[in-house]
């Protein structure tokens, strides 16, 4: 691979890290601030058993915050990429599942406001874009020929 291509890839990697890290930190903010409202959003998805709803609503935003911050700062990037991808796949599947079964629920992705409009295909499209960015991070960290993340 030419030096120019490598440089471009490194630049894209930096942008993707910063962008997705920012998205995750932003998404965690409202949820950490309003755990009661977020627990309702989690409940409304009707995927988890009732006794896991609150626990998920308490822990998930912190995981988003930590992974997002690490992506931006550049600490523990391989671990953060695994967390971000796992979460994105879970979020995307949950949205897709509920849209497919016609359940009219709020996304709860960035806002915990119960009166926000229900999630639509547009929400799914937005999440698809985030998913593509997350997959690019996986490629760069784990499959790039000369990954610069040393295990030492």
């Amino acid at each position: 691979m030419s030096g120019q291509k490598k440089q471009l890839l490194s630049f894209l990697f930096f942008c993707a890290r910063f962008f997705l890290g920012g998205v995750f930190v932003y998404a965690s903010y409202g949820k950490i601030l309003h755990p009661d409202a977020f627990s309702e959003a989690v409940f409304n998805y009707q995927i988890l058993p009732d006794h896991l709803v609150n626990l998920t609503a308490i822990i998930l935003p912190w995981l988003e915050l930590m992974a997002g911050l690490c992506l931006i700062i550049g600490w523990w990037i391989p671990g953060a990429v695994v967390i971000v991808n796992t979460l994105m796949i879970i979020f995307f599947s949950a949205l897709l599942f509920n849209l497919a079964r016609g359940l009219d629920v709020q996304c709860g992705c960035f806002s915990t406001d119960a009166s926000e409009e229900a999630a639509t295909r547009l929400t799914l499209l937005r999440d698809s874009f985030f998913l593509v960015v997350a997959f690019f991070l996986v490629y760069r960290v784990f499959f790039f020929k000369k990954a610069r993340f040393s295990a030492d």
Partner: peptide, 8 residues
């Protein structure tokens, strides 16, 4: 790197 990632 994979092992490191899952540990992290």
């Amino acid at each position: 790197i994979w092992i490191q990632a899952f540990r992290q």
